[in-house]
Computed example of a mutant assay.
Amino acid sequence: MFELYNRPFLQEIVDKRLPVKFSENPDKDEGYLHDEYLFLGEKGYVFHEDTLTMTPPKG
């Protein structure tokens, strides 16, 4: 399911360089939320634990 739905949606976010706000800490999740966190991290996004936000790389 992640590959079919989440990955294409997240790739659009990455292509548009948009920030992502999580409802809970994705690093502590064991499901798709953690997969989203890892996908964005591989794309250079930075996680800000204080705001539960991931922001695109600068540049």
Rank of each mutant, 00 (worst) to 15 (best):
D15K: 08
L18G: 00
Y32V: 15
P56R: 02
L18V: 01
V46W: 03
P57N: 09
L38Y: 12
P56I: 03
P26C: 01
L18Y: 05
F47N: 02
L18H: 07
K28P: 02
E42W: 06
R17I: 07
G41Y: 04
F9P: 01
T51P: 00
P26N: 06
R7P: 01
H48G: 05
P26A: 06
Y32K: 11
N6K: 12
T51I: 01
Q11W: 08
E42N: 14
P8Q: 04
P57C: 05
L33P: 01
P8S: 08
V46H: 08
Y32N: 15
R7I: 03
N25Y: 11
F39M: 07
N25F: 07
F2Y: 15
K21I: 04
P19A: 05
N25T: 13
G31F: 13
N25P: 03
R17N: 11
H48M: 10
Y5M: 11
G31R: 08
K28Q: 12
E36V: 05
G31N: 11
G31W: 10
D27R: 14
R7W: 07
E24A: 15
H34K: 15
P56Y: 00
L52G: 05
G44N: 07
F2H: 08
G41W: 08
K16I: 06
E12G: 12
T51Q: 09
H34G: 00
V46Q: 13
G44T: 11
G44Y: 11
H48L: 10
M1W: 09
K16A: 14
L40S: 03
F9T: 15
N6L: 14
E49N: 09
M1T: 11
L10V: 06
H34P: 00
K21V: 07
E36R: 10
L4E: 15
V20D: 00
M54Q: 13
D50G: 09
Q11P: 00
P56M: 04
P26Q: 03
V14L: 03
R17Q: 14
K21W: 11
L38N: 12
V46R: 11
D29G: 00
P8V: 03
E24D: 15
P8M: 01
L4Q: 15
L10S: 03
Y45P: 02
S23K: 13
T51K: 09
P19W: 10
L52H: 04
E42C: 08
L4V: 15
Y5C: 02
G44I: 10
F47E: 02
G31C: 09
E3P: 06
V14Q: 00
F47M: 04
G41N: 12
Y45T: 07
P57M: 09
V20A: 03
Y5H: 08
T55E: 11
L38H: 09
R17F: 01
T53R: 14
M1V: 10
P57V: 09
K21R: 15
V14T: 02
D15T: 10
F2V: 05
D35C: 02
R7N: 07
L38F: 06
G59D: 09
P8G: 05
I13H: 05
I13C: 06
D50N: 09
M54W: 04
S23Q: 14
L52T: 01
K58V: 12
D35I: 02
R17V: 08
L38R: 14
T53F: 04
T55K: 06
N6S: 14
T51S: 11
N25Q: 08
P19N: 06
K28H: 12
P8N: 04
Q11S: 11
D27Q: 15
